[in-house]
Amino acid sequence: MENVLSILFCLSLLYLALTSRVKHCVNVLQAQGIILAVINTLPLFHHFTLGEIILPAALLGIKGVLIPFYIRKIITDLDIKDPIEPTIQQFTFIMLVITLMSAVFVASGILAKSTEINIIPFASGFSAIITGILVIIFRKKLLVHVMGFLAMENGIFLFGSAIAFKLPVIIELGMLLDIFVVVFLMGIALNKISTTLSGFEAAQLRRLKD
């Protein structure tokens, strides 16, 4: 079941790489948050503890509801245009994503021989990190950079469920809070930038120096 959800997660990543609309990106992130929440609920079916339900609940709350809601609010508030402007051709971009994803899968296949990892979630998480970084590199809009960052964070969470040893819940919760604060700060920063600069493109940030 975890594998099936990981496949869905990977498909959502592909869509994130492909889509040319900011709104679709938000939807994808929301879907990813829900998938993550479900993945983290799965172990509870075998062994239920009240303490461990906090993490999936928090995931669902923050990643599935709060952050998408907040980003949508930023989009309407700042009147950000829907199309995403890529800096390279979509074709090349997708090829790049697919190639790196394949490399990640092959690498984790090799890694799995020596260490105790669950290949599919591990590789999916890793691909999410790489896709997030690629999105940040090859997109112009600042808001999309935030989304790339969020995809990366999602990947890290998936990563966590793939490795054998368990992180304490409190650390994962701390990470979640961290992300939320980062996104919140980004929103405030964007608000500030919008008052000084007209666009939201990374290239224009260069003008901010000094």
Binding site: N3, I98, S102, F105, S108, G109, I119, I120, A123
Partner: peptide, 11 residues
């Protein structure tokens, strides 16, 4: 491709 990757490595 993804499907295939996942299937191949899911041993």
């Amino acid at each position: 491709i993804l499907n295939l990757l996942i299937f191949t490595f899911n041993k």
